[in-house]
C-alpha cells in the first residue's frame, strides 16, 4: 500500500508468526521496538545502536534482516517471523542442535543467531563451516567465541541433531 502524503504515525497490518494484526505506530518506531514493546515478543533482543550486533535479527518476508534497521511502518503488509515463531510443539532441529552443542551461554544473542542460521538453512540445507560463518557474520556473540554455534549449525546440515 502506498502512502502519498507524509505521515508521522500509521496503522500497519503485519503478520507476525502467522498471526495478522493491525496496530497504530509512530513512524519513528523501529521494528524491533514494535515487536518487543507493542507486540510483547521480547525474544528479539537489542545489543547495540549501530546495526552491528544482529541480536534483533528476524525474517521479514522470509529474509533475515536486522529489525533495528527497519521502521515498523516499513513492515506494513509484510510477514515477520521472530524466534518465538520457530518452534511448534517441539523444538526445531536447529534449536536442539544449539542445546546439544552448547551453542549458547547467556542466551542473549541466541534468538538472532537462530534467525540468521535458519535463514541460511532454508536456502542451503547442508552448509559448510565457512558458509555458516559467513551467514553468522552479522551476529555478535560475546560468550561462546562462535565455535560451538558454528558446529551446531553445521551439525543440523549433516542431520546430526537428534
Amino acid at each position: 500500500m502506498s502512502v502519498n502524503e507524509p505521515i508521522t504515525s500509521a496503522v500497519v497490518t503485519v503478520t507476525v508468526n502467522g498471526t495478522e494484526s493491525e496496530h497504530e505506530v509512530p513512524v519513528r518506531r523501529l521494528l524491533v521496538h514494535f515487536l518487543r514493546d507493542d507486540l510483547d515478543l521480547t525474544g528479539t533482543h537489542i545489543g547495540c545502536d549501530t546495526g552491528s550486533c544482529g541480536a534483533c535479527t528476524v525474517h521479514l518476508d522470509g529474509v533475515a534482516v536486522k529489525s533495528c534497521a527497519v521502521l515498523a511502518v516499513q513492515a506494513d503488509g509484510a510477514t515477520v517471523m521472530t524466534v518465538e515463531g520457530l518452534a511448534g510443539e517441539e523444538l526445531t532441529p536447529l534449536q536442539r542442535s544449539f542445546h546439544e552443542h552448547h551453542g549458547l551461554q547467556c542466551g542473549y544473542c541466541t534468538p538472532g543467531m537462530l534467525m540468521s542460521a535458519s535463514a541460511l538453512l532454508a536456502e542451503n540445507p547442508s552448509p559448510s563451516e565457512d558458509e555458516v560463518k559467513v551467514a553468522l557474520q552479522g551476529n555478535i556473540c560475546r560468550c561462546t567465541g562462535y565455535w560451538n554455534i558454528v558446529e551446531a549449525v553445521v551439525a543440523v546440515g549433516k542431520g546430526e541433531a537428534a
Binding site: 502506498s2 502524503e5 505521515i7 508521522t8 509512530p26 519513528r28 523501529l30 545502536d49 521502521l71
Partner: peptide
Amino acid sequence: MLLREVGYARP
C-alpha cells in the same frame, strides 16, 4: 537508538 520524530511516505 531512538529516532527523532519523522514524516514518512511510501510512493
